[in-house]
Amino acid sequence: MSSINTNVAAMTALRSLTATNNALTETQARISTGLRVSTAADNAAYWSIATTMRSDVSSLSTVQDALGLGAAVVDVAYTAIDEAKNIVSQIKDKLVAAAQPGLDREKIQTEIGELQAQLKGMADSATLQGQNWLSVDSSAAGYNASKNIVASISRAGGSVSVQNITVDTSSMVLFDSNAAASGILDSTRNATTGAVDAAGTFTIATLDISALTDSTADLAILDGYIKGADAAITEMAAGATTLGAASARIDIQKSFVSSLMDAMESGISQLVDADMNEESTRLQALQVKQQLGIQALSIANSSSQSILSLFR
């Protein structure tokens, strides 16, 4: 039946053209943004997952910065303690030289004194971002020998937690302002063995050989100084080893975080990115379909004109 009130063909053609236009608009939006899921309306589940993953990637970027800062702090401490170890080795050499009878120990002490002053200055200057792991005051409020470096974040059951790399700095403290504690260089040491001893009689930072003579007793004291310097070198080497291990772990963690970010970015891409090859092909098909739909609608609208010929 032909009707001038209801043009079924035109209505069908219009619906088809509207659907094509909507699909064309969606495809153009995907091409312009590069995303097939750009809002929650596109795919609520994928959008939610991708949003959470993007947040975690952003946090991991901050973790990378924290690891870089932590690595710098460790490197500063390692450089200082390694150089301090070399200076104590020089002090030990001069003490060994002073064991030779007849030498002017007062002049040797002048050199040792300069090296001792250098040790203190070096430890005090090993500071980065307000952190100094070598010259401390363990009596200060909030002091903790265990230093945490933010290493990563983990998500379990919707809950996020921060993971840390912990460095125990107690084995590398060179000077401690706390009267009840001491570091490697300001610890009192046993005059016979050179080991740290609360009842000891000398420290590496303050030992003085200028008044020592060639007497048996004074040479025994000098021998204790040499053993003390040797023990301090061993202790600083242990501290440097701890720092070296921490530095290596930080480097490994930095590489892992970088790889993890790449993997998460790839996962986000799989969820929300548009396949541009597919979208470009779809765009061309929809453009042709749109043109055909316009023609079909034009034909459907013009079909009612033929009814006039029946009344001529």
Rank of each mutant, 00 (worst) to 15 (best):
Ser146Asp: 00
Ala145Asp: 03
Gln163Thr: 09
Gly68Asn: 10
Lys92Tyr: 11
Ala145Lys: 02
Leu115Gln: 11
Asp104Asn: 14
Leu95Thr: 14
Ala126Ile: 00
Ile91Thr: 09
Ser89Asn: 15
Ala71Asn: 03
Ser152Arg: 05
Trp133Ile: 00
Val150Met: 10
Ser159Leu: 15
Val167Trp: 04
Ala123Gly: 13
Ile87Lys: 08
Ile149Lys: 00
Lys94Met: 15
Leu134Ile: 14
Ala80Met: 01
Thr79Gly: 12
Trp133Ala: 00
Gly158Asn: 06
Ser170Phe: 01
Asp104His: 13
Gln100Pro: 11
Ala80Pro: 01
Ile165Gly: 03
Val150Gln: 11
Asn144Gln: 12
Val96Asn: 10
Gln118His: 08
Ala72Gln: 13
Gln90Gly: 15
Ile87Val: 13
Ser170Asp: 14
Thr166His: 02
Ser125Gln: 08
Met122Asp: 06
Lys94Tyr: 14
Ser135Arg: 07
Gly130Pro: 00
Leu67Glu: 03
Asp124Lys: 07
Gly142Ser: 03
Ala80Gly: 07
Ser146Phe: 04
Lys92Trp: 14
Ile149Trp: 00
Val74Cys: 14
Pro101Gln: 08
Asn148Lys: 12
Gln90Val: 08
Ser159Cys: 12
Ala71Leu: 11
Ala123Thr: 02
Leu95Phe: 14
Ile81Cys: 07
Ser152Met: 07
Ala151Gln: 04
Lys107Val: 13
Ser139Val: 01
Gly157Met: 10
Asp137Glu: 00
Leu115Met: 15
Gln90Cys: 09
Gln129Arg: 10
Lys85Glu: 04
Gln100Asp: 11
Glu114Pro: 10
Gly142Tyr: 00
Ser161Met: 10
Asp82Glu: 15
Gly70Lys: 06
Ala98Trp: 07
Val150Phe: 09
Gly130Trp: 01
Val150Glu: 10
Tyr143Cys: 08
Ala156Leu: 03
Ile165Trp: 09
Leu103Ser: 15
Ser171Asp: 06
Met172Asn: 03
Ala141Arg: 01
Val96Ala: 07
Asp168Thr: 01
